[in-house]
Nucleic acid binder design. Structure first.
Length: 564
RNA sequence: GUCCCUAUCGUCUAGUGGCCUAGGACAUGGCCCUUUCAAGGCCAGAACACGGGUUCGACUCCCGUUGGGGACGCCA
């Protein structure tokens, strides 16, 4: 690597799908690297053996790739990733020897040392500290015997701790400015766990150095860790990268937005469901083992595994809040829409459009061009679903019909293959796209049970007639809607081509000839074709269905809604 | 409890001492358009947390209060 090359990184721990806060951090790091002409590196922090999961790794990689956040260095996923500078591997669990080597150097110089306290002993100390209303701080006893401790290392379980420096450490944060931490705020923290794995602090410092990371952009929960990392860097003789801590993303109620929210909501909804209908419990147990389920319901602090939660969500048809990238993908957002919205949470380009509005819409490449640390805000931001939805609505509507259709089919392939299959005819599908574009805030809406496109995706006898609509538009009036339907049917038999404009014109002509207002004809048709009085413009509604289905549905309607 | 960060409309934000009787967007309400549902257009209401300083002059700088968030793990 040439000197001065910028390397920014995203370093998630594999504990489930990427959540939106992590996605934003990744996005910012990616944008910073692109802006500075550097590399964006992805590293997997899998040093917690208890929570490690291969599925989660794959999920995170796919989430990032879907968002268009491609890493030049990191685990391989298709064409993304690789190790051009030879700084890998990118899984910390495969780098243990490096951590141990660094630790050996530290111990040799008495900058780090083994400690043999049990969890119980430490808990007791913490309890005392808390009773005395002071912060707990681990420091090595003055009477500590180095030779004895080193001798015990070989045979006894132990952790390795850093000897914290007795000095104030100033973090030069590029978002927050200088933040000073006194010596009382850094204790002899653990570097290597009892199981031989490094702690986050050790692994992150060593890897950032080894991988030449120059910029560290991360969540605010790490600000307090930064002086520890700087202390470690000094002990090891490393440089200190540029730090910037971005504000958190919160729920509308002000709490921190996290994966836990989904778990909490699921527990509340499941309890409600079981109370209302105890038999649902059996369904739930098909998704989550009975024992696990009971334990989870009884302990508000426990969490289900990602797979279990997904299974439970499906089994009980729970409506859980979207917090992960996968949730939003499932909900039918475009990746560029999520990117755009996320980028605006805590950052903005500070540009005005010609008409005086703030510039709020930009692509990934715009972001790469405009991103800067200076324009990251300092206050936390609440995640506003309504605004995201508005972005989605607008960006979907701006697509060409063909693009919309392609995006929709792609979405369907993953989440609703039957919907796409129901509209195989390319011409009719294009009409569908044209009329759904302005009616669906996300791609998932089009095929949703009560969605505006549902009528075009079900069989001719696959929908019910809304009673009120039938009463208002078919039974009443002079002439009655039924009669009008019978009459307009003839016009439709002959209309060619069976396309929106021609249909629209033919129906208009029919109205004129019959001396009827457009509404008098259009509404009965809508009820007959869709079961309800609301649908896209008449020409589009009929063209999407095709002549055959239109005639079949009119006949079915006449038959089934006959007055008794 | 201790430490750290933070504070402009309901929400995201513009604002870097005079351009601010504070601008934009989303949401909300109203009107227009209209064969339904949308989309679109126009209009309206809506904020500098509070108290002290500094200054000729504070949304902007300083201090404090209050509110919010985070950390205090052999999690990351």
């Amino acid at each position: 690597m040439s000197r001065g090359t910028v390397v920014a990184r995203f370093a998630p721990s594999p504990t489930g799908h990427l959540h939106v806060g992590g996605a934003r951090t990744a996005l910012f790091n990616w944008a910073l690297a692109q802006k500075l002409g550097g590399h964006f590196l992805l590293r997997i922090e899998d040093t917690d053996q208890a929570r490690n999961s291969q599925d989660a790794v794959r999920g995170i990689l796919e989430d990032l790739a879907w968002l268009g956040i491609h890493w030049q260095e990191g685990p391989q996923l298709g064409a993304v990733g690789g190790d051009p500078r030879g700084v890998g591997p990118f899984f910390q669990s495969e780098r243990l020897a490096r951590y141990d080597a660094a630790l050996a150097r530290l111990i040799e110089r008495d900058l780090a040392y083994p400690a043999f306290d049990t969890t119980e002993e430490l808990d007791a100390l913490r309890k005392i500290a808390s009773a005395e209303k002071r912060a707990f701080r681990y420091v090595r006893a003055a009477s500590w015997d180095r030779a004895a401790a080193l001798a015990r290392m070989a045979s006894e379980p132990h952790v390795v701790r850093l000897r914290a420096p007795d000095e104030t450490i100033v973090v030069h944060d590029h978002v927050l400015g200088d933040v000073a931490f006194g010596p009382e705020q850094i204790d002899d923290f653990v570097l290597r766990k009892r199981d031989g794995f490094p702690t986050y602090h050790l692994a992150v410092v060593i890897d950032d150095e080894a991988m030449g990371v120059t910029h560290v952009l991360r969540g605010p929960e790490h600000l307090n860790n930064t002086p520890k990392h700087i202390a470690l860097q000094r002990a090891l003789g490393y440089r200190t990268p540029i730090y910037a801590h971005v504000p958190s993303i919160q729920n509308p109620d002000g709490s921190k937005m996290s994966k836990r929210d989904k778990d909490k909501a699921a527990r509340a909804l499941a309890q409600l469901a079981f109370a209302a209908d105890p038999s649902l419990r059996v369904r739930a147990e098909s998704a989550v083992a009975a024992k696990r389920l009971t334990a989870w319901l009884g302990d508000a602090k426990s969490q289900l595994e990602t797979g279990e939660l997904d299974a439970l969500e499906r089994a009980l048809a729970l409506d859980l809040p979207s917090v992960t990238v996968e949730d939003f993908r499932h909900a039918g957002y475009l990746p560029e829409t999520l990117d755009n919205y996320l980028a605006l949470l805590g950052w903005n380009p500070g540009e005005k459009l010609a008409d005086g509005r703030d510039r709020e819409r930009f692509s990934l490449s715009d972001l790469a061009e405009k991103f800067s640390l200076e324009r990251i805000g300092r206050g936390s931001a609440k995640f506003d679903r309504a605004k995201l939805l508005a972005f989605s609505q607008e960006q979907l509507a701006a697509l060409s019909d063909a693009d919309w259709l392609a995006r929709w089919r792609t979405w369907c392939a993953r989440y609703a293959p039957e919907a796409s299959a129901a509209l195989a005819d390319p011409q009719r599908a294009l009409v569908f796209a044209a009329s759904m574009k302005t009616r669906c805030a996300t791609l998932a809406v089009a095929s949703a049970p009560n969605g505006p496109g549902r009528f075009a995706l079900v069989a001719d006898d696959g929908f019910a007639y809304d009673e009120k609509a039938v009463a208002k538009w078919l039974a009443k009036g002079e002439p009655a809607g039924r009669t009008i339907l019978e009459n307009v049917r003839g016009t439709l038999v002959e209309t060619t081509p069976f396309e929106p404009a021609a249909i629209e014109a033919a129906v208009a002509k029919f109205c004129e000839a019959s001396g009827l207002g457009m509404g008098k004809v259009a509404q009965p048709l809508r009820v007959a074709l869709t079961g309800t009085a609301a649908s896209p413009p008449l020409g589009e509604t009929l063209a999407v269905l095709g002549r055959e289905a239109v005639l079949a549905r009119i006949d079915r309607c006449l038959r089934e809604t006959r007055p008794t």
